[in-house]
Amino acid sequence: MSYVLEGDATARPATPPALTQVDPRYRVVAVVAFAITVVALHDFAALLIALFVSAAVLLHGRLPVANTIRQVVTVDMFMIFVILSLPFTTPGETAFTLFGLEASKEGIGDAFRIALKANAIVLMMLVLVGTIGPVRLGHALSRLKVPPMFVHLMLFTVRYIEVLNEEYQRLRTAMRTRGFRPGTNMHTIRTLGYLVGMLLIRAFDRSERVLQAMRCRGFTGAFHLIDESRPAGLREGLFAIGTAAVLAALIYVEVRHGAFVSR
């Protein structure tokens, strides 16, 4: 069975890799720190190291590699355009000319920088945070002092995405049995609009039953969040040291090597 947010449960390795056993809070904080550091980098050596570390973590995490790569390269069309247009719109030394447009060395460099940063961060995030699972992520965020209302809204959303997706699949099946085939025409657009409207109505009706059921059970506006907190063990300690070492190395390379090469 495949789920919207959790992928194929059967595809997961039997013995979970060590990194995905670290307390989720540490993983969230580490990824945020990694992302902020990587975004601020400018030197190519540092960025390549960052991507290399992300790739190593991906292999360690034993995520389905082909699947993950496909996720990573699914950039919106317009982001691809942003990257492709940069060489021609950034002023600087001409590297090559294409159809009378001059591509600058600086622009090509910037385009590669964006691609490296985006990929390094997305990979790290998918492996370290994506493997936490939506519900545990909610609980981890709550213990990181994210406001409870936000966490509750997230948990509700996560809970009902699966339910509503099933509802959506049922409606699609019903449409198929009646011979609906999507195309670029007004009929398709109107039909899919009705589909969205119908989904909203069914969701709305469901939410009323949900609220009544929750009232019955004495819901006061707060979920009981599972407190999995255990004292930070050796694993968390090593993870924190490892994260700090990677970030320190990136900053060191940026400052020493970067100052040397690009200035």
Binding site: H152, L155, F156, V163, F204, S207
Partner: peptide, 9 residues
């Protein structure tokens, strides 16, 4: 909260 969460989903 429930209606918002369900509609958000």
């Amino acid at each position: 909260m429930p209606v918002t969460g369900v509609l958000s989903a």
